[in-house]
Design a protein around this nucleic acid. Sequence first.
DNA 1: GTTCCTACTTGATCTCCGTCAAAGCAACCA
DNA 2: TGGTTGCTTTGACGGAGATCAAGTAGGAAC
Lengths: 247, 247
Amino acid sequence: MTVKAQFDHSNCGDCPIRHRAVCARCDADELEELESIKYYRSFEAGQTIIWSGDQMNFVGSVVAGIASLTQTMEDGRTQMVGLLLPSDFVGRPGRETAPYDVQATTDVVMCCFRKKPFEELLDHTPHIAHRLLQMTLDELDAAREWMLVLGRKTAREKIASLLSIIARRDASVSQKGLSGPIVFDLPLTREAMADYLGLTLETVSRQISALKKDGVITLEGKRHVTIPDLGRLMEEAGDDSDGGFLV
Amino acid sequence: MTVKAQFDHSNCGDCPIRHRAVCARCDADELEELESIKYYRSFEAGQTIIWSGDQMNFVGSVVAGIASLTQTMEDGRTQMVGLLLPSDFVGRPGRETAPYDVQATTDVVMCCFRKKPFEELLDHTPHIAHRLLQMTLDELDAAREWMLVLGRKTAREKIASLLSIIARRDASVSQKGLSGPIVFDLPLTREAMADYLGLTLETVSRQISALKKDGVITLEGKRHVTIPDLGRLMEEAGDDSDGGFLV
DNA sequence: GTTCCTACTTGATCTCCGTCAAAGCAACCA
DNA sequence: TGGTTGCTTTGACGGAGATCAAGTAGGAAC
């Protein structure tokens, strides 16, 4: 309690696990302990961070860049099952092996903790375990929300859904008010978008062209997107909810 | 430890939460505490147990019957996002409102705990929190596995996937060896299957007929299914993994 | 500059599944 | 016995999106 004051939280942002898993009700002793088992790793775009079935010897969170969770069938069909943006957590306390491939979609920096010590830390600091449960429930909600996209939405709605997720997620970092136009660079190739949406890259391309033609979005080059009216985009996505849990 | 011996665990099976969330490392005092906040509720097939957006004042688990989690879009398109079989947990410690509709697919009996006291129990019994995290991670894996089904599998593969989930889940209760034929009653209407699989009920019906014609399954009446060769069915599902996490 | 190379776009065609429609079948009631 | 109702099957047809196939654009290497 008095100890807390001694700890510098000013740059919690640069290591999101600290912020998301700990700072909510932090304690300097635990932070020191986390600090001692922490290390950083960098990955280049396209690199596989973890192979499905591998032994996991760390957990951690994305500090910069975008990573994806993907599943692949024997014949090569692949489905992305999660998009990891900065501050998202990776890893399964209590699990031995990774259930999916984790790939760096862009260049990625991860903040890692050795798994064993982290699990021990979990055992004697209930509020971190509690925080982890909340994060896992959020991910579960996002996954289920995405099941609706995959199962029932049209190609156009799927694209609009993905764009509005990225837009809102991006907007929440850069600006609080969502009134003005939103501008961002697409961090995904058309193929990656297709893998996330259960489409082919050709269909993705066609639908993006269609949304552009209809004035729902503006494109400069192939990646730089402007969304003049987020509400309009969300209508296109068939989204009645606030979509708060998505990604 | 000595106390444990005094507690009767012989019928843990009739209230799965006890078994799944507690008995793994149980303690009579906690069980007594759980007992005091426990009650049962019954629902008829078709009834909605919880409406999306409702205040949740309990958590619990399914004791008998099958319940489903569903999302509905404004225009009526619906997607099932979870199938709750006996022993599955319902509810979100730390969440105020329900994110999805929970519906009784068959007649359902639930074992409920008042939410507030249950959350307090969680706070001072870390191993229950731990168990709950594991269960949530399992659900997350199941949801992500299902995203592959929804996004990339053909109608025939989807049906085979669903049948093999039910078969394996059923078989794990009734028999340990999976060598012989598996027999069970489909607990879902064609429409419910369609909602789960992101198909129409007509397509479900057609694909079931096709699997029957091809000898992958046998049908007596409309619901009684025999699976002569589970391996064959899993091939049809395009399933290379053991699918251990599914539902 | 030229030559790659990768990412993307666009067109033509095909096909799986959705839509619309009708009919079968069992349970239940009168 | 016939009628109603809910679930299911089957058929005919059309369309959204997949597949196959060029072709464009931009960046890096030389």
